[in-house]
């Protein structure tokens, strides 16, 4: 029982950065933009979040700065792809490389310095019982990531602005012809995605491993990208998917630590399970919908208003 509780707590921690990044990317993709630079934006957020927390000692400020850093780095992508109509795939990959380089350079003075973890804000008495610990034992970032999923769902499906954003993603020319600023909406979506990726990056030094080293995010941005597809662009499926991916990653480690019969699956297989699951879901989706997917129709296509 205690082990299950412990495992759930580790799983929630492992899932949170993926959930943040994927929630942001979901909004970006819903507006018809494919930003492959999640990993780069996460690294910008991680290094800035670490630096601000290290300097001020205040993790809340660190999260805020991380969001700003993620959004700022996403603007490089936005200007190139939305204003200058550059190829989104190539620009997104470039953003990842940029983020890695920038964070390495900026983070040099911070390597090898510890900070404190961003701990639960609930009084410790609440987390004494194992069951209560599952509910109250996390960093504020964990609760925030779950709230954001609800907020994004509400925004996309219950507000007018969300409807416009989806319209821009499904048919940019129609949205444009009835007077909406396609580029403006997409700028907003990309900035939001950047801010969420920035917070996702800040999760690494603040709740997972309180240090800065280059490449700290270890490729989680790519998992977030796969997760959006896995969830077929639906916020609550995204929530479930993030925890499923987190569970797979955590189970691998607990199984290895337990030893015995749990070691039968080689670690390479464990590591590839999230991707295999994504492929499986993609196949299932395309079978069900007779070849079509639930991807936004304008995903990845540059919008040229003159046409």
């Amino acid at each position: 029982m205690d082990l299950t509780i412990a495992m759930i707590i580790t799983m929630v921690g492992a899932s949170t950065p993926i959930l943040f990044a994927a929630t942001g990317e979901l909004v970006v993709e819903k507006s018809g933009v494919l930003n492959l630079g999640i990993e780069g934006m996460m690294l910008c957020g991680a290094v800035i979040g670490f630096a601000v927390t290290f300097t001020t000692g205040n993790p809340w400020l660190g999260v805020l700065a991380a969001a700003a850093a993620g959004a700022a780095s996403s603007m490089i992508f936005a200007v190139l792809t939305l204003s200058l109509s550059a190829n989104q795939v190539a620009t997104g990959l470039a953003l990842t490389i940029f983020g890695l380089g920038f964070s390495t350079l900026f983070g040099q003075p911070y390597t090898g310095r510890p900070i404190g973890l961003f701990k639960s804000v609930f009084p410790p008495e609440l987390a004494t019982d194992p069951i209560l610990r599952v509910i109250f034992g996390y960093s504020p970032l964990v609760y925030f990531s779950m709230i954001m999923v609800g907020v994004v769902w509400w925004f996309l499906y219950r507000t007018r602005a969300g409807l416009i954003l989806r319209a821009v993603g499904e048919s940019d020319t129609s949205a444009h012809s009835i007077g909406y600023s396609v580029t403006g909406v997409r700028y907003g979506a990309v900035a939001f995605g950047g801010a969420m990726a920035g917070i996702a990056g800040a999760c690494f030094p603040l709740i997972l491993t309180p240090q800065w080293v280059e490449g700290l995010t270890g490729g989680r941005g790519w998992i977030a990208l796969a997760l959006v597809v896995f969830a077929s662009w639906r916020p609550f499926r995204l929530l479930a998917g993030a925890y499923l991916f987190g569970l797979i990653a955590t189970m691998e480690l607990y199984a290895k630590a337990a030893g015995g019969p749990f070691r039968i699956l080689p670690s390479e297989l464990w590591a590839s399970l999230p991707y295999l699951a994504t492929i499986l879901v993609l196949v299932m989706i395309s079978l069900r919908r007779e070849g079509s997917t639930s991807a936004p129709a304008c995903l990845g296509k540059p919008f040229l208003p003159t046409k």
């Binding site: 580790t10 921690g13 490729g219 630590a257 337990a258 590591a271």
Partner: peptide, 25 residues
Amino acid sequence: TKVVYIGSWFDPAKEADAARALIDQ
């Protein structure tokens, strides 16, 4: 001695989670 290979040359978050899994057991 329990040996856990994290299957990656560099992934501090995974190292931390592996340590958690080991300590929990």
